[in-house]
Simulated assay, not measured.
Amino acid sequence: MIDNISETFGMLFFAVFILVMLVLGVMLIGRMFLNIYRKLIGIRIRKMESCRSCGHPISRSAIICPNCGENFGKINGYADSIFFCFLLGFGLIGLAFNSLSEFLEMFEGFSFLR
């Protein structure tokens, strides 16, 4: 009985993991096409932006403003890269489909289906 419950929760966790990988992959592919669209119509992805605290121009990939020390806590540069979005998006989708095939093989072997 306990083995069936643990197998069921394991399958549920694995299915949610595959779904998250697929959703993230699709989001990154969508971001890639958005970046391509921006490049084609001429909207430049700015390399510099103003600090939200002091207004000093800083790099978009900066984590801390060198002028005032404001912490931005994120790196924006990767999301604007077409190549990064392509690699990570298709990599996640490929990994999700590979995991899905493994999941289906595991699903056939579970004892609660017998």
Rank of each mutant, 00 (worst) to 15 (best):
M1S: 12
M1G: 12
M1W: 11
I2A: 12
S6Q: 10
S6I: 15
E7M: 09
E7F: 00
E7W: 02
T8I: 12
F9I: 15
G10R: 11
G10L: 07
L12P: 02
L12K: 08
F13M: 11
F14E: 08
A15Y: 06
A15M: 09
V16W: 01
V16S: 09
V16D: 03
V16I: 15
L19Y: 09
V20W: 06
V20S: 08
V20K: 10
M21D: 05
M21F: 13
L24Y: 10
M27K: 13
M27V: 14
G30Q: 10
M32N: 07
L34T: 15
L34R: 15
L34P: 00
N35M: 12
N35L: 10
R38C: 02
G42P: 06
I43T: 12
R44K: 15
I45K: 13
I45M: 12
R46Y: 08
M48Y: 10
E49P: 00
E49I: 05
E49N: 03
S50L: 05
S50V: 01
C51V: 01
C51N: 02
R52E: 12
S53C: 09
C54P: 04
C54E: 03
H56T: 11
H56K: 09
P57W: 01
P57F: 01
I58E: 01
I58R: 05
S59Y: 07
S59G: 06
R60L: 06
R60G: 01
S61D: 15
S61P: 01
A62S: 14
I63K: 12
I64G: 00
I64Y: 11
I64Q: 03
C65E: 02
P66I: 06
C68G: 01
G69L: 03
G69V: 02
E70T: 11
E70F: 10
N71T: 06
N71K: 14
F72P: 01
G73W: 03
K74A: 13
N76K: 14
N76I: 00
Y78P: 08
Y78T: 05
D80F: 11
S81F: 03
I82Y: 02
I82L: 03
F83Y: 07
F83H: 04
F84I: 10
F86A: 11
F86L: 15
G89N: 02
F90H: 09
L92M: 12
L92T: 04
I93M: 09
L95M: 14
F97N: 02
S99A: 15
S101A: 13
S101M: 09
E102K: 13
E102L: 12
L104W: 06
M106Y: 09
M106E: 08
F107A: 14
G109E: 14
F110C: 03
F110N: 05
F112K: 04
F112T: 06
L113R: 14
R114E: 13
